[in-house]
Design a binder for these strands. Structure first.
Lengths: 151, 151
DNA sequence: GTTCATGCAATATATGATGTTACATGAACG
DNA sequence: CGTTCATGTAACATCATATATTGCATGAAC
C-alpha cells in the first residue's frame, strides 16, 4: 500500500526552518524537498492554524517558526496534520450482525489500538529540538555545513 | 488512506471454514463476505501454498482447513498473505545525502519499528482456535445459530 | 502599481486494493 | 467418454487517496 509521507515531509521542512534565521519561502522549501510549493503550503496549513508556524506574504515573506522547538513534539505535528491514518490494515466492514465479523474485529482491534497508542506515545517523546540536535550531531560527524545540503 | 482489509477478510473466511464440516466453495465464502469468488481465491492462495488450507476441484470440492486451529496464529496468516505493509506512514525518500532527512528517518524509523514489532507480537499471540472460541461465546450470548448468519 | 508571496480551489497523475470477466485445468458424476 | 462443478490465473475495470500542477485571488513590501 502507498504510504503517507506528509509527517516525514513536514518534519523535514520544520528542521530546515529551525536551521534558518529569517522566513523561508514555500518555493525554497519545495526545492529542498523536490516537490511543489503548493504541497508545502498544503501540509503547513494545519501547523499554521495551530500557531506553530507563521506565514507572511509579500517581499521578505515566507514561513517562520512560531514556537519553542523544545515544546513542539512529533505528536503535535501529527495532530496538526489532521491525525492521518496510522495503520495500513483495517477491518473489512462494520456489519454488526455477524458474530464472526465481531470476533475478528475485536481481536484485530485490540492489536491495532495497542500499536496506535504506542506510536502516539513515541511521537510525544520526540521534540523538534531533539531532532535539530540530532541534525547538528550528524552534520558535525559528516564534517559538512548545516544548511540545506540537498542534491 | 485506504486500509487493507485482506487480513480481516481471510480470518473471516477461516472462521467460517472452521465452523463448517466439509469443504466450502469460494462462491459460498464470497457470498458470506459479499465479495467476488476470485477475490477469495486470491487471498487464499498464500495460505494454500503454506499448507494451512487445501483446495479441491470438481464436485464436492472447495476449501478445507488443513491444520490445527490451535497451531495457526494471526502472524502465520499475515505472513502467508505476503506480509503487506502494516503502517500507513512512511519516510519521504531515501536520499542519504541530506542529514535532515537522515535525522527524520531515524526518529520516525524507531517509532515505526517499535509499532511493527508490537503488531507482530500481538498477531503471534492470537490463534485461530482462540478466535473460534470467541465466536462460539458470542453466538451463545446472542442466542443465535453458529453458521453464516450474514445479512 | 508592480512584484513577491501566501491561500485555495480545481484538476491531473500514480499507486494499490478491490471487483469483474474470461478461459484453462482437473475432478466427480452421468 | 462428455458434462458439470470447482479452482487457478491472467487481464482488465474501478475506486480511493496521496501527490503534483495550474490558475487566480489576496495582501504586503518596495
Amino acid at each position: 500500500m502507498r504510504r503517507d509521507s506528509r509527517l516525514s515531509g513536514v518534519l523535514h521542512v520544520l528542521l530546515h526552518m529551525a536551521n534558518h534565521a529569517g522566513p523561508v519561502t514555500s518555493e525554497t522549501l519545495a526545492k529542498a524537498m523536490s516537490t511543489n510549493p503548493v504541497v508545502i503550503r498544503r501540509v503547513m496549513a494545519g501547523l499554521r492554524d495551530q500557531g506553530y508556524v507563521r506565514a507572511e506574504k509579500g517581499h521578505g515573506g515566507g514561513w517562520t517558526l512560531a514556537c519553542e522547538p523544545a515544546a513542539l513534539t512529533l505528536l503535535d505535528v501529527y495532530t496538526a496534520l489532521g491525525e492521518p491514518t496510522l495503520l495500513a490494515l483495517g477491518n473489512r466492514t462494520e456489519s454488526p450482525g455477524c458474530v464472526v465479523e465481531q470476533a475478528v474485529n475485536a481481536a484485530l482491534g485490540r492489536s491495532f489500538a495497542q500499536a496506535e497508542a504506542l506510536l502516539r506515545a513515541s511521537f510525544a517523546d520526540v521534540t523538534l529540538a531533539a531532532l535539530a540536535a540530532d541534525v547538528r550531531r550528524r552534520t558535525r560527524r559528516a564534517g559538512g555545513k548545516p544548511g540545506m545540503a540537498h542534491a
